[in-house]
Amino acid sequence: MNVVLITIISLGVLGSLAAIILYFVAQKFKVFEDPRIDQVEEVLPAANCGGCGYPGCRAFAEAMVKSDDISDLNCPVGGADTMSAAAAILGKEVAAADPMVAVVRCNGTCENRPRITEYDGATSCTIATSLYGGDTGCSNGCLGLGECVDACAFNAMYMDEETGLPVIIEDNCVSCGACVDACPKNIIELRKKGPKSRRIFVSCVNTDKGAAAKKACSVACIACKKCQKICPFDAITVENNLAYIDYNKCKLCRKCVAECPTNAIHMINFPPPKPKVEKPVAESAE
């Protein structure tokens, strides 16, 4: 009985002592952390994708709390809802960012762009790029080795076996930009998702002169500048033998799509072609 008592008492005393020491140590070395960081982190999507440019959601939350002006910061995954929720916690203003989506700017399918050599190295776009221009006549186009698909953490991409090109599953894409960084050819671009997900873009990145580009790929941009001339909104620029549509200026009038002689300009999610009615202003009003 005595033994039990002594044990209990001595252990109890030891425990209390340790607790008191721990309490004071914890007080002394307490690291102050803004409780709002936790609150902001709570509303973030916890995807830790790095799409915001910070290593993980917590780092982003810290940045949001620390910076006075958070208009430069954006969580592409959570979008406007998340950002306004986070801004509300901090009592800061947030600029409404347009939702973005990744776009593959190459349509060099096996049919459109014949293979002229065979690549036989490690399955990596970066390695193939360091070796040569690619297995087709186009040294700017997609190599089809799928480094972007490997980089996607949201299951928003797959390789189309038939075309040899990556396809973006729009509903899954959070516009984190991992694929954009992964592509050594800079083919993938984040573009404004557009009203009803409708958007128009040049699906080509070839910078060769017209004849060479056309020879390499039947749907290449040949820099004929027809689109630039017809565009009523000055949204199209042709630089370095390549047309580019500024998504902030484009009003989705679709004139360039019809004008392009090589069908290099693509439109997505528009209703199936009706008899020719063009109401550009009505489109943009939506």
Binding site: G121, A122, S124, T126, I127, S130
Partner: peptide, 12 residues
Amino acid sequence: RPLLDYIRLGKG
């Protein structure tokens, strides 16, 4: 295994 392919990538 394509050892050198990847080492070259890493070197870059």
